[in-house]
């Protein structure tokens, strides 16, 4: 079973950041970190596109994680922020720059006694909105239909289309 992930078409992206806002709102719940899991990046004269996790089948981030804060869950790489120790191995391992570690102050309580605030680390990465009824919030919010969810079936179709094109003009491979 191949993984499914969100992919962006930079030709259609207008750089409006609506995907980031939608992602943040999805994570704006108690116990989560309100941050966008994808980042719209504009570089030089060529590119503007959101960078988002590919949910790699042989995910280097999950392989590098010593505490299974990142782990395989069926066709995606899942996140359990409570297990993150902030070692940043995943950040080093991810070739796309789609994983981040952030620190947040949290104040623990022992009954009525407020303990000293401590810095806690959290891994920030796309969870593909598996717990969301209508699928990824970013895709729904995209104003220019530049984002879509792709699966193995899509790739099979793309490859078939490329095969057909190649046969039509065989000089391209000769």
């Amino acid at each position: 079973m191949g993984s499914k992930f969100v992919i962006a078409d930079p030709r259609l992206c207008v750089g409006c950041h609506s995907c980031m806002a939608a992602c943040l709102v999805k994570h704006f719940v108690p116990g989560d970190v309100p941050m966008a899991r994808l980042n719209v990046v504009s570089i030089g004269n060529g590119m503007t596109t959101p960078i988002v996790c590919h949910h790699c089948e042989d995910a280097p981030c999950a392989a590098a994680c010593p505490t299974t804060a990142l782990y395989h869950d069926g066709d995606r790489v899942a996140v359990d922020i409570s297990r993150c120790i902030g070692c940043r191995s995943c950040v080093i391992a991810c070739p796309f720059g789609a994983v981040e570690i952030v620190s947040r102050q949290s104040t623990a309580r022992l009954r009525d006694v407020k303990l000293n605030p401590v810095e806690e680390s959290y891994v920030i990465k796309c969870d593909r909105c598996v717990d969301r009824e209508n699928g990824p919030a970013c895709i729904e919010a995209c104003t220019s239909h530049a984002l879509r969810l792709v699966s193995d079936a899509d790739f099979r179709q793309t490859v078939a289309a490329k095969h057909a094109k190649t046969v039509e003009s065989p000089q391209s491979v000769l």
Partner: peptide, 12 residues
């Protein structure tokens, strides 16, 4: 793209 993203979509 920054002032009217909906118009930007029309330009695309």
């Amino acid at each position: 793209n920054t002032s009217h993203p909906i118009v930007a979509r029309r330009v695309v």
